[in-house]
Design a binder for these strands. Structure first.
Length: 239
DNA sequence: ACATTAACGCCTC
DNA sequence: GAGGCGTTAATGT
């Protein structure tokens, strides 16, 4: 068990069990994990707070310990954003910062209360030199992530908005489903703006399609949550 | 089909 | 009361 000082004044703690969840560390022994906690800086974020900003100059590798966050590419002009990925606990991000000059145009914002650790590039390089297989596993992680995002881009180009929305909802309900009396709740707080940014549509179009789905009895909505009632109908729309 | 714009009420801070 | 959010309608490509 290691306790570390966070960016602010609060003390956050993390144990080896948390680190073992990251597949880069799955073969690590106790002392190796100990050395990781020594260079891992923990920080807590509230919903809506930025974890990584586009103009951040320092290269870091981030480890999502708790809570989910949206990773998006932002337009330099107007404030448009396209959400590329939703980062979950046990996953890493910021990998591209090592390959590029900066983590260009990429922003990560907490969707709920998050605890995130980060390791500086020099510290991580030392870690990789001591454990060469970390690099191999990192490669695998990056590859898998890339393929997921490629598949989503395909959908964005060739499908219309209701179809994209249906696909998104099916994908989310698969990943975040919580069974409730009211139906299958998607256990993720998303605004309609977020949903729009996930499927490359406008907030207005999302509102219209969402209301269409609701009127048809396929879904129900409460505040920032969606409940799915008719998966089959959504699948038909997603075809 | 979809974006854009504008306008309005609602809710949260 | 300001700004974010959800909704609707008109208009443009």
């Amino acid at each position: 068990m290691g306790a570390l000082q966070s960016g602010s004044n609060e003390r956050l703690s993390i144990n080896f069990w948390h680190l073992k969840k990251f597949n880069v560390f799955e073969t690590f022994e106790r002392d190796e994990l100990e050395s990781v906690t020594k260079v891992l800086h923990l920080q807590e974020f509230k919903r809506g707070e930025p974890i990584h900003l586009p103009d951040q100059t320092e290269r870091r590798l981030y480890f999502s310990i708790r809570g989910r966050a949206k990773l998006s590419r932002v337009d330099d002009g107007g404030g448009k954003e396209l959400i590329l990925y939703i980062v979950k606990p046990g996953e890493m991000f910021g990998l591209l910062a090592f390959a590029r000059e900066q983590y260009l145009d990429t922003r990560v914002v907490a969707l709920e209360k998050c605890i995130v650790g980060h390791i500086s590039e020099p510290d991580f390089n030392v870690l990789m030199q001591k454990n060469p297989d970390v690099g191999l596993r990192l490669n695998k992680v990056v590859g898998k992530r890339l393929i997921k995002i490629e598949h989503r881009l395909e959908e964005l180009l060739f499908r219309d908005v209701p179809c994209r929305l249906a696909r998104l909802l099916l994908r989310l309900v698969d990943e975040y489903e919580v069974e409730l009396p009211c139906g299958s709740k998607i256990d993720l707080k998303l605004t309609q703006q977020d949903i729009a940014n996930l499927i490359g549509a406008t907030r207005e179009m999302v509102s219209l399609s969402l209301n269409d789905f609701k009127r048809s009895g396929w879904i129900a909505m409460h505040r920032h949550h969606v409940c799915v009632h008719d998966r089959q109908a959504l699948k038909k729309m997603a075809a």
